[in-house]
Design a protein around this nucleic acid. Structure first.
Ligand SMILES: [Mn+2]
Ligand SMILES: [Mn+2]
Ligand SMILES: [Mn+2]
Ligand SMILES: [Mn+2]
Lengths: 220, 220
DNA sequence: CCTCATTATTAGACAAGACTAATCTATTTT
DNA sequence: AAAATAGATTAGTCTTGTCTAATAATGAGG
């Protein structure tokens, strides 16, 4: 059974591979707040244990076994986040660190029961998909808000790169998962965007923000 | 902030001091499934950190700081046990190991919210008191069932020394926290005891079992 | 009071996981 | 093509927590 540190490394590799097509030592180190040298050592160990392939100087890729393991870890993380927000009343900007700990509790039964208790949710409080017990993820077609054009009607599906500051900014503008928006104007100068929610008046979002909003097509 | 191992040692000392008036190296080691030599080293460290006084060869006693810390740990353990049984539907014989892990999650807010979510319970699924946020324990006057006499009417308040086997035995006889019993007969030969529940017919309990049942006076 | 069994402590080893410093590799810049 | 730079790896150190083996203290029985 992998240790907490091993688990965190596998998860970091998984999520970097989601974003790009390689997981480099430096980026893993940054995520985990470790030094690159520590990561190299860990990658070697995880490669020996069969969770990933480590191509020195060219990063790491997960094996089938490593991917399956990462999906279970992501499942645990997101189920706990859902519990914290839906049941305990945490804000969506407050759950990450706690879930980071809870995800390492070893008990299959615990996760099964938690999942059932929460009604087998498919998405976490940030709109990210929760893999099921077999590791299957419900796919959706989403695009980043900053790739939308004037006149598009969309619904916020997920917030990517969830830092607490971004989440609080969204809170303050009344934006949450499911919020319907219409793109009213795009300013080429700074990439900022004016959006109008279904109810209420339009306001502006910086490119920095719109880039982190994953949206689905919505009805006009 | 104490590590997981430090926390477990402090808790072991606390619970041994609840049972007797000293916590010896060997007994701590046994609880934690460690060797005595490892415990000695840890006691020295915890003494330096001010959690306890270690009198070599005469065991350990908690300081005020250590006791306060232990009470918070016990609080966390018992709140999680309550959650697992009341909300997730675990059996009372299945929660110990999981709570042993959950108790180490570091987040004061988590415990506050969990406590509120559960309705600020005063007792865990085994009838053990849950210290409040200040570490205050609601005291009750209980006695062991094996110290009761023929004709006594009692109510089961708690199960002490909760091993899974004992809990399952109680389950099978329909005994749980709150069950009312009348002591019908005590057999001096083996210390066994015949008890009659309010509804249903009498049955026998070995001394081994009755010794672990904490009871309160009940109405005839 | 002496002996001995039990318990505790110390000393030394080891594994895990982190670090720093030194070295090496790949890639970009000149 | 050589040099510079960013990134990665290796080697060596440290801390934590565990162990085993050797030694020491305590308390009970003779
Ligand atoms: Mn984690
Ligand atoms: Mn999330
Ligand atoms: Mn524990
Ligand atoms: Mn309990």
């Amino acid at each position: 059974m992998p240790t907490r540190s091993e688990e965190d490394h596998i998860k970091a590799v998984y999520s970097l591979l989601q974003e790009g097509d390689s997981a480099f030592t430096k980026d893993i180190a940054e995520r985990l707040q470790n030094k690159a040298s520590s990561v190299t050592v860990m990658l070697k160990k995880l490669a020996e244990k069969g969770f990933l392939k480590h191509e020195p100087y060219y990063g790491a890729k997960l094996t089938v076994k490593g991917r399956a393991f990462a999906l279970q870890l992501v499942r645990r993380h997101r189920l706990w986040e859902t519990f914290l927000v839906e049941r305990l009343g945490f804000g969506w900007d407050e759950v990450h660190e706690v879930a980071e700990q809870l995800e390492h509790v070893k008990s299959e039964k615990l996760i099964d029961k938690l999942d059932a208790y929460l009604g087998k949710p498919h998405f976490d409080p940030h709109g990210d998909p929760i893999p099921d017990k077999k590791g299957v993820i419900r796919e959706r077609k989403t695009r980043r808000l900053d790739s939308c054009a004037v006149g598009d009607h969309v619904r916020i599906a997920a917030v990517s790169g969830t830092t607490d500051g971004l989440l609080r900014l969204l809170d303050s503008k009344g934006l949450r998962i499911g919020t319907a928006l219409m793109v009213q104007e795009v300013h080429p100068f700074d990439g900022s965007m004016d959006v109008k929610p279904k109810s209420g008046s339009a306001f502006s979002l910086s490119k920095d923000v719109s880039h982190h909003l994953q949206v689905e097509k919505g009805k006009p």
